[in-house]
């Protein structure tokens, strides 16, 4: 009888330990953090760095674009001021690597001899196409999960840039007490800690033409910068104009205050 009790106690203690772990696992996601070097785009004089955006685009193109679209970004945007600063010819070459749907041919056919829809190389005016034909196909190829469009991802998440950076650099082995779902990956920064996306960045996932070492942190930093730009392409212009407007308003406020004192100088109030 005493043996029974002890077994019960031990098992009870074990259950409690298990539960403490589960409580931790289901708890709040870990707080996202900025990279050590901070973000060039934050602050009153925030701006993007062309080289960073170009590297970030390379990471997007070679790693992310396999599953994630940029529905609201056109190839031409890559040459816009305040962006990655590609030339129009570079943009044409980039666009030509993507295929976009082509209309019916002169016979009214929409499918080629293999029964596939006609496609043509993209031009700068086109938008980054989705790698999938539709949502069902996207889910079917990703174990039921839908890879979100990345155009606005840094604005569509709380503390977006830090969250994305932390997520990309935060993959780790699941603690023993966490029961992982099928095809799920552990990431303390993801709400619920279980994310369907496999770790996308590994040391040397891309090769930077400028010789920058492709560490996971570097690639995460670059691609987060790039995706901040896709979400907020007018940021540089906005902050520059903001400084001018604020300075102007300060002057106007000072003048008005002065005028106000003048107008009211003889009135008791």
């Amino acid at each position: 009888m005493s043996l029974t009790i002890r077994t019960g106690t031990i098992i009870g203690a074990f259950v409690m330990a298990l539960n403490a772990g589960a409580a931790m696992a289901a708890g709040e996601a870990e707080r996202p953090h900025a990279p050590q070097e901070g973000w060039s785009f934050s602050g009153i004089f925030g701006h993007y760095e062309e080289t960073t955006l170009q590297r970030g685009f390379l990471v997007y193109e070679s790693v992310c674009a396999g599953c994630h679209a940029l529905e609201y970004v056109a190839f031409r945007n890559l040459a816009d001021p305040g962006g990655p600063g590609f030339t129009l010819d570079q943009v044409r070459a980039i666009a030509a690597n993507y295929r976009v749907p082509a209309g019916p041919d002169e016979f009214g056919d929409t499918l080629d001899e293999n029964g596939l829809p006609f496609v043509r190389p993209a031009i700068p005016a086109n938008y980054f196409p989705s790698p999938y034909d539709n949502e069902q196909q996207a889910r079917a190829r990703n174990w039921g999960a839908l890879p979100p469009d990345l155009s606005l991802i840094t604005k569509a998440r709380v503390n977006g840039a830090n969250y994305l950076y932390s997520l990309l650099t935060g993959y780790e082995d699941a603690p023993e007490y966490v029961e992982m779902g099928e095809n799920m990956n552990y990431n303390p920064f993801f709400p619920g800690q279980q994310i369907a996306m496999v770790q996308p960045l590994y040391e040397g996932s891309v090769e930077y033409p400028d010789g920058t070492e492709a560490t996971v942190e570097q690639m995460a930093y670059d691609v987060t910068n790039f995706l901040m730009w896709t979400a907020e392409p007018k940021l540089e212009k906005r902050k520059r104009m903001g400084f001018q407007v604020m300075a102007f308003l300060f002057v106007l406020a000072a003048l008005l205050y002065w005028s106000y004192r003048q107008v009211w100088r003889d009135v008791d109030h």
Binding site: M246, L249, F250, L252, A253, L256, S259, Y260, V263, W264
Partner: peptide
């Protein structure tokens, strides 16, 4: 003039 001054402060 008083409203204008306050408005500019608000605008800031």
């Amino acid at each position: 003039v008083k409203d204008a001054f306050a408005l500019v402060l608000f605008l800031l």
